[in-house]
Design a protein around this nucleic acid. Structure first.
Length: 860
RNA sequence: GGGCCCGUGGUCUAGUCGGUUAUGACGUCGCCCUUACACGGCGGAGGUCGCCGGUUCGAAUCCGGCCGGGCCCA
């Protein structure tokens, strides 16, 4: 059957998309094959599957397809991490409302509808990318089937003592009006002023004058002589007048500002630390909306920024503001909206963090690349507070508890009643403590990471009662940007709920940068979408870019050149396949023919080596190495060397062509399989022309038997042909021009069955005996680059004199030479004697290839 | 300030627990439309492997210092 001249990726990719059956990618619960469970990241359904996602998913799909071919029972589930602020904001924007304008349930419904339509759009991209997702294991965190499990996990951890409620300082975003966890705080550089002012006779420097009302102490270093003997004194807070103590603490930096710092509740984490350590008062100066509270007196109701300005003005007026310095600082902001966070004490829900247990589990996991483990270690080692999991938002999993209106007893639902929304339904029994039937449902909802951090439990079949039967998963693939969140929380939750590590291996991928080397962003205009690339060069080319563009784990720059090179590689293989199938079909050949010609043995040996290399690389998730090895084999070994070498034999009708046919058939078959994980459409299309069903249902190839002799002979043969090509090139001969007799003197003999002779259009002879060569001096070769500048107008006479020299002096030039009665120095390297070789009296050119002598009898 | 990663021909990049001539792609120069492919073939040019020092018979690779870039965290 003839292959079309051109490979039309758009037609081919569309056709296979329509042909492939979803069920072929399903995990089979009844299978006896070893399981391979992937804890796929559930993306946030923004409506676009961006290139960073595509990059991440390419790695996952390479592994999923490879493992299936290695006869694993693979689960490649697809989740959607739906809850969260961005969708709430989008809904407010679309409907022109704010979340408080409509009932909570109606707002949630709007969020769900938007999310579902976004998911549908993203599913389309996943399909076009040929990601072999198991759609029977899709999960959507906002649907009852999933968030029921989130609630169940909450109740389990509550019962296990991992979750507690407490009034404790938390990071708070006043724009989102919710508490957030440390993992959600992003630090941004900012220029601010350090303000020095008189504090009841003491000079204080502060960056947060607006917190003056929340001042609860002034601290100095215990060894700071400026403040000796002052500890314990009560100071009057300027403008407000309340009294605060002067305390000492070694954590105060005497070199910063005036060496005296005011402690407020709360300016930063350090304040919290001191507040706890010294049992200080709590003064809340800022409320949830970021406005000043009643204790701020005249400033109450102002936004903190307004208050800051007003207080500084009042300090100036009172002449206590002494000076201001510009200061570079890093301010904690909400990672979603970049609003500076406040630290405020609130009643919130927390998950206890046990760093030792988490690290123990983290160490049991194989980290790839290894150094990414350090990020986890660093993050865990500096945890100070527990994980704040309550949020004051709407579109999220409700915290499933009620409080008795009479005695404030906490009531939890029965597990079989989950999922519930405690704000719309009540408990099924009266309060067990006081018998009351009046309850208040918890309005706080859960941090979105509480949903996604049980993804692995969900896909491994957790039902709350036991160790999930598919647990732990084999693989967690994810980006390095969410190690401190998703990876950390997932390990924490697995340890808390099952007592063991969630996965055997974690594979970390890098971030995708724009073509200009910067992070992709709208403002830079360097965003490339997967759809753009698929449109122009096809999904397979994009997948190849993901594999070959960077070493696993490092960040990758998007690069059109790499995509184009990938698509050219496909074209090249397409043409190889066309040629091979044309030759195979041209005339029947024996399927039992021995593969014994040196070229054929060489091809099989190199193929075998390639299978070994690619397999090793796949096992180590080194996709760049795998694809590189494949490209080198297909392009260099197969196309440029092997096929060029055996073309003549294939064109012939001799029975020797059968070995080449067999070798080519086996090679094409194996090549398709090796490429299948990377270019599923292309490999399928090529393989379909071999007429043996889907390549994705095939087993992964095994390397053939080692054949070191075949490899060595073949390498020599290929090198000889390459050297002779170079020779022809230097002689200005076309590659197919006749070149007379070529004799190769090698031991043991490596007669190639005529391949090299046909390829070079030469009469090849193979000799075991060494050649009988006679070395005779030839012409003198002058180096004009030396002679010209040194001798100038004497050059002509110099050369004449040199030619006239006796042989031995031509071989070993004298120091001086006489020209026209003058003696002149012979410049270093002015000339050298060339030699000619005679074989049986006939002049030959001689080249040496790895110690093997090749003589060429040129046609006169 | 701490931790981690990186610095390789014009550009991007592989190699980094030591060992012939440093990988590939793009670009570039010359020749060739040879019955698979000009989206191709053949041949070439182009590298002080960031800088300095050390270990070693031998360093892009190991150690120390410095310079520059990035990420994560205070």
């Amino acid at each position: 059957m003839d292959l079309p001249k051109n490979y039309e990726f758009s037609e081919v990719e569309r056709r296979w998309q329509d042909t492939w059956r979803e069920e072929d990618n399903y995990f089979d619960p009844a299978s006896t094959k070893p399981k391979y469970i992937i804890d796929t990241p559930p993306p946030y359904p923004t409506g676009t599957f961006h290139i960073g996602n595509a990059f991440n998913w390419c790695y996952i799909d390479f592994i999923a397809r490879y493992r299936r071919m290695r006869q694993f029972n693979v689960m490649f589930p697809q989740g959607w991490d739906c809850h969260g602020l961005p969708t709430e904001v989008k809904v407010e924007e679309i409907h022109g409302i704010t979340k408080n304008d409509v009932p909570r349930e109606e707002f949630r419904k709007m969020c769900r509808e938007l999310t579902l339509s976004n998911i549908e759009k993203m599913r389309g991209t996943l399909r076009r990318m040929a990601f072999s997702v198991d759609w029977s294991h899709e999960y959507i965190t906002m649907l009852p089937a999933y968030y029921g499990k989130t609630q169940l996990s909450f109740l389990r951890m509550l019962a296990g003592g991992y979750i507690y409620q407490s009034e404790h300082p938390v990071n708070f975003c006043t724009r989102c009006e919710t508490a957030i966890a440390f993992a959600e705080v992003a630090y941004e550089p900012r220029e601010t002023t350090l303000n020095y002012f008189d504090f009841d006779g003491l000079e204080i420097a502060t960056t947060r004058p607006e917190l003056l009302a929340a001042c609860v102490a002034v601290a100095v270093h215990p060894e700071d002589e400026r403040y000796f003997g002052m500890a314990g004194r009560m100071l009057s807070v300027p403008l407000f007048g309340h009294k605060v103590p002067l305390i000492t603490d070694p954590a105060v930096d005497p070199a910063f500002g005036s060496g005296a710092v005011m402690i407020c509740t709360f300016g930063d984490k350090q304040d919290v630390h001191w507040w706890k350590q010294h049992n200080l008062d709590l003064r809340k100066a800022i409320d949830r909306q970021g406005r000043m509270t009643g204790i701020a007196g005249d400033y109450a109701g102002m936004k903190s920024s307004e208050c800051r300005k007003a207080i500084l003005d009042d300090m100036k007026r009172a002449q206590i503001l002494t000076r201001q310095e510009v200061l570079e600082q890093r301010v904690g902001t909400c990672w979603r909206c970049k609003t500076p966070i406040e630290i405020m004490s609130e009643r919130q829900w927390f998950v206890k963090i046990d760093p030792d247990a988490i690290m123990k589990a983290a160490r049991e996991i194989t980290w790839n690349p290894e150094h990414m483990f350090l990020r986890m270690e660093n993050w865990v080692s500096q945890m100070e507070w527990d994980w704040c999991i309550s949020r004051q938002r709407i579109f999220a999993t409700p915290i499933p508890v009620w409080f008795c209106s009479r005695c404030n007893e906490m009531i939890v639902p029965a597990e079989e009643d989950l999922p519930i929304d405690p704000t719309t339904s009540g408990p099924s029994h009266p309060c067990p403590k006081c018998g009351s039937t009046e309850f208040v449902g918890e309005e706080d909802v859960l941090d979105t990471w509480m949903d996604s951090s049980i993804s692995v439990l969900n896909v491994t079949g957790w039902d709350g009662t036991s160790m999930p039967h598919l647990f732990p998963a084999e693989l967690r693939p994810q980006g390095h940007d969410i190690i401190r969140t998703w990876a950390f929380y997932s390990i924490l939750r697995s340890v808390a709920l099952t007592g063991s590590r969630p996965w055997d291996q974690i594979l970390i991928n890098g971030m995708v940068l724009g073509e200009d080397g910067f992070k992709m962003s709208k403002s830079r205009g360097n965003i490339i979408s997967p759809e753009d690339i698929i449109e122009k060069y096809g999904a397979d080319a994009l997948r190849q870019w993901a594999a070959a563009g960077a070493a696993t784990g490092s960040d990758i720059m998007f690069n059109w050149n790499d995509v184009i090179a990938a698509s050219r590689f496909q074209t090249k293989i397409w043409n190889i396949a066309r040629f091979v199938l044309l030759q195979l079909g041209r005339r029947p050949y024996s399927r039992d023919a021995p593969i014994e010609a040196p070229a054929d043995r060489w091809l099989m040996a190199r193929l075998s080596g390639t299978v070994r290399e690619v397999t090793d690389a796949m096992e180590a998730c080194q996709f760049d190495r795998a694809l590189k090895s494949l490209r080198e084999f297909a392009w260099d070994v197969l196309a440029d060397n092997y096929i060029e070498l055996v073309k003549g034999r294939l064109y012939s009708d001799e029975k020797e062509r059968d070995g080449a046919c067999r070798a080519l058939h086996a090679t094409l078959d194996t090549l398709c399989r090796l490429m299948a994980p990377f270019t599923p459409y292309f490999a399928e299309e090529c393989y379909s022309h071999l007429g043996k069903g889907s390549v994705h249902a095939c087993t992964w190839p095994e390397p053939g038997q080692q054949d070191p002799d075949g490899l060595a002979y073949g390498d020599l043969l290929v090198r000889i042909v390459a050297e002779l090509r170079r020779y022809k090139h230097e002689k200005g001969l076309a590659l197919n021009a006749p070149m007379g007799r070529v004799a190769v003197f090698s031991s043991p003999i490596t007669d190639d069955g005529g391949d090299a002779g046909r390829a070079l259009n030469a009469a090849f002879e193979w000799h075991e005996e060494p050649p009988k060569l006679e070395k005779v001096p030839g012409d003198l070769k002058f180096n004009m680059a030396v002679i010209g500048p040194k001798l100038r107008k004497d050059a002509g006479a110099f050369m004449k004199a040199a030619r006239a020299l006796p042989r031995d002096l031509q071989e070993n030039p004298p120091e001086t030479l006489d020209i026209d009665g003058r003696t002149i120095a012979v410049p270093e390297g002015a000339f050298s004697l060339e030699y000619r070789y005679l074989e049986a009296g006939e002049q030959v050119d001689v080249i040496s290839v790895g110690g093997v002598i090749v003589t060429i009898h040129t046609i006169p």
